[in-house]
Structures are given as C-alpha cells and as structure tokens.
Design a binder for these strands. Structure first.
Lengths: 209, 209
DNA sequence: TAAAAAATGACCCGTTCGGGCTATTGCAAA
DNA sequence: TTTGCAATAGCCCGAACGGGTCATTTTTTA
C-alpha cells in the first residue's frame, strides 16, 4: 500500500521537483499539487500526507493546518520551509504539524520525513528538534556545584517557597528585613539564580525543601 | 577532526557493539566505555559526545546528566533506551539531553545522531519527537488543571517556572512584555496569588506544570 | 587561640514587578 | 447578531526586589 501525498507550494520549480520525486518511487502516490491553500481546499482529495509550504500567498501554511484538519480527521502534515525560524516552528507545532523540514533537505530526507509521519512519528531536522527541546528546558541547565545552604538559609528558603515577602519573613524570624535580604543574596549566589521565581523552582525541582 | 565519544552502558554485549561501531569509522574516536555512571565519573576523560544508557544500576542515566555537565561545560549527551517512554523523555530533555534514540536503531542512525548533536542539533527518533511535540501542543499541556487557565496562560506559567523575566518570555512568545504582564495578572487572579514566587510554588505543588 | 564561616544590620541605586486603568481585535457561543 | 472571552497592547505609580559595598558580632573549626 503506497502513501498518498498532496502538496501546497507556490514555487512551481520546487513543486515540480517534489512531484517528480514522489512519482519516482512506488512507495508513494502523488495525488495533487497546488500553489495556494485556497486552491488546495477547493479541489481537495483526501491524502495520507500533506506537504505544506509555510510562506504562501493568501492563507499561509500555518493557518492552513486547522483548515486541512477539519476537512479530514487526521492528515499528516509536514511543513516545508527555507528558514529554521523559531516562531514558525512553535506555531506550526502548536497548530498540529507532524513534521518540519527544510526545503534544502536532500530528497532522501524528505521521503524519510513522509514515511516517519505516516507511521505516526514526527519528522524534525536536528536544528529544529534542538529548538523545540530548548523550549522545554529551564533557562539554565546549570553545571554548577550544589552548594550547601546553611540552616538559616534553608529556613528562609522555606519561607520564600511559601510566598512570603522579605518583611514578613523578617517578622517571622525576628530579624530585620535587611538581614533577610543578605541571606537571600547568599542563597542566590550558592544556587546561581537571580530571582525568587528561580529559587522557588529550583527548591521544588531539587527537593531542597 | 574526529568526534570523541564516551559510553556508559551496563550490557556488555551492546557496549562492545557500540565500541566496535565507533572504532570502525575514522570520523569518530572511541575514548572510553564503562558499565556504570560511578565508574565513568571516576575515570572521566572529556569527550565531545557521551552515549548514556537510561536504565543503569546505581545512578541512572537521567540523574547522570547533570553530573557529567558539571565535569565538563558542554558535553553533548545522547540517551540510549529500549522504550520510547513518555516520562523518561521529558525528564531527560529537561535535564539537558541533546538526543534520545532507541537501542534498536540501526548503526547508521546512531552515528547520524552523534553527528547531529555534535553539530549543535538534537537527535530524536520520530516517535520521541512526536511525544515531545505533543507535550508542546496546547491540548495536552495540562489535562487536569483545576483552575481554568487558558492555553496562553499555561504557556506563560511554564516559562515563569523556568525563571524567566517578562521580557524574555515576551521574546520567546513573540509578543510584547506588556501583554505578558496582562496574562500574568490574569493568572494571579485565577490562582489567587500576588507574586511570582507564589505562583511558581503553586504550580509545583499542584502539579500545574 | 587564631582564622573562617555564619548571622546580623545598613546604605544606595536601578530594575522588575504588581495593581489599577483603558482599548482593540478576533473568534465562538448563545 | 449580540454577547463574551481571549489575546493583544498601552499608560501610570508605587512596592518589592537584586546587586554592590561595608561593618559588627557570634559561632564554629582548624
């Protein structure tokens, strides 16, 4: 059983290349190709995979994702793009794209991507995958030594994770707000952070509290 | 210039296969291989890439990531695993892994992965990439949030728990810092808090993130 | 006992945040 | 079709925080 494919790509040269590429192998079946989303939706035939350019005149590729998805329950969508651009990646993924590959990819990579999304996986170029992963990572996956906090510092850390402001902490501990600030500065230095939000997150993640 | 490689893998057969695979090609340079994280850290030599099994006796692969990162500024780390398991993927990525591939991958795929992470990209198997992307897709960001945060609000909440200041969040999301502030105000109202520290603590405690 | 670490306190200055407003756009539900 | 929510963006103001520097006292440890 071959994988049926639809294409939306406004550059006719590249569109023709894709059609040629797909038609060459019996594993794939070329169904249709249009230069715009509008024409594709009008003359739509269901396919297993849609190759979708991002920069298109009229409706762009990202806006098109939900439109195709409502025509057909689960078409697999592979975005084609020239740039590995941060914003488009996230928008496309959030809109439900299954793949994101560069136009300059080798023919082999493009066919790999089609197969991967058809089998239920995702297809990302390594640099795109990196950016997606960076988005999931905390700001600094820090290679710093885990310094040991003093008793007083832990005490103050606990009160910070309870959402108290310095003056309240000072009141609880019968010390001045300035001293609380000094302890907090030391905590920041040891944990290599620069804000309360960061210190609270770190406290939870590393079970310091 | 060849890519130097270290390996932590407890199954000696697979470990030997990897060593053999790497030694075969002049593009790669085998440096060391150990059956446990402990031994690897003791006899550590800097390498460009570390192949790290997830299921290891003693310290496991995910716990090992920060340990290796503090030995050496930026080693590229590729996780090896038998299962494409949801929880481990996210843990590994959040800990700073650069790749996540299956042991049953072909030798060619494994070498590809090494090269991709060495060049600054990420290496994910299609199914793993899919799960990472599903995590980014709004529907699955948080199935059980008791408070009804909108998709955008959850997205911003996540970035706050990563310690980012408003301007950075704005940059990540391609909106103005003012809009970020507005969303945060709404989050505060819904969660009934009055500071970042409180919202981060609540997010962790109630597993909103 | 001398040195080091911890706890306490203060000042200045600039940045960031939080609360209170208003406003426009787009989409979806009623 | 109107109503309402979500997302976008701006303004003002004061509170809170973060960084830098300095100083004194107590406790711990070498």
């Amino acid at each position: 059983m071959s994988i049926s494919i639809g294409i939306v790509e406004d550059h006719s040269d590249f569109r023709q290349s894709l059609v040629y590429l797909i038609s060459t192998f019996s594993d794939y079946r070329f169904e249709w190709a249009f230069p715009s989303v509008e024409e594709a939706l009008e003359n739509y035939v269901e396919t297993d995979v849609i190759l979708l350019d991002i920069n298109l005149p009229g409706i762009n590729g990202i806006e098109a994702i939900p439109l195709f998805k409502q025509k057909q329950p689960q078409p697999k969508i592979v975005m084609l793009t020239i740039f590995e651009d941060d914003r488009h990646i996230l928008e496309a993924i959030k809109s439900g794209a299954d793949g994101y590959i560069l136009k300059k990819s080798t023919p082999g990579k493009i066919l790999d991507a089609i197969e991967q999304v058809y089998e239920g996986g995702a297809a990302l170029t390594p640099m795109v995958a990196k950016q997606v992963m960076l988005f999931l990572q905390p700001e600094s996956v820090n290679p710093g030594t885990p310094e040991t906090l003093t008793v007083r510092e832990k005490e103050i850390l606990l009160l910070i994770t309870q959402g108290m402001i310095n003056e309240v902490i000072a009141g609880k501990l019968f010390i001045s707000a300035q001293t609380v600030r000094n302890h907090i500065k030391n905590i920041y230095e040891k944990l290599q952070v620069h804000s309360r939000a960061q210190v609270v997150a770190k406290a939870f993640r590393e079970r310091l509290i």
